[in-house]
């Protein structure tokens, strides 16, 4: 496989959860990500729904994945190789080309499709940044 393949997706790779627990990448469950985000404090898990999958215009050979992210349903598009695995809630590892993922990483994958909801992370918003009316903030102090 090309050297640039991220080795943390290689079957058997050891992953450390925020709780300190060690697990193999192929054994991870949805709960592991959710609990790790809770424990780590600075990170938040977002549900990102795949709304469109296209071949990337800018970078041939890559796939453009269109997501709606989190409660605000903000639109985010990323270009990834078709074999790049994503963790889908309640389903596990999935990619646009499960055969290639299996060949390159040895990781068994479902076929990623529009409508799948993937685990993604973003920075935890510190509370005061949320848009709360001013008076309500004063009462809290």
């Amino acid at each position: 496989p090309a050297p640039s393949n991220p080795s943390h997706f290689m079957k058997g790779a050891i992953i450390q959860l925020a709780t300190g627990e060690l697990k193999r990448v192929e054994d991870l469950q949805t709960q592991d990500f959710v609990r790790s985000a809770e424990v780590s404090g600075g990170l938040k898990i977002d549900s990102s729904m795949v709304v469109d999958i296209r071949t990337s215009q800018q970078r041939p050979g890559l796939v453009a994945l269109h997501f709606t992210v989190g409660e605000q349903q903000s639109k985010v598009t990323i270009d990834v190789p078709p074999e790049h695995p994503f963790f889908v809630f309640g389903q596990g590892w999935s990619s646009c080309s499960p055969e290639r993922t299996g060949q390159l990483y040895g990781l068994a994958c479902h076929h990623l499709q529009v409508g799948d909801v993937c685990v993604s992370i973003t920075l935890q918003q510190p509370p005061q940044q949320q848009k709360q009316p001013l008076q309500q903030q004063q009462q809290q102090q």
Binding site: H8, L28, S36, V69, K75, V76, T122
Partner: peptide
């Protein structure tokens, strides 16, 4: 044996300023 942090496995999808 290398150990990888859990968050390196999931994409960081924050809305870009243009959203």
């Amino acid at each position: 044996v290398p150990v990888f942090p859990w968050h390196s496995l999931v994409p960081f999808l924050a809305p870009t300023q243009s959203d």
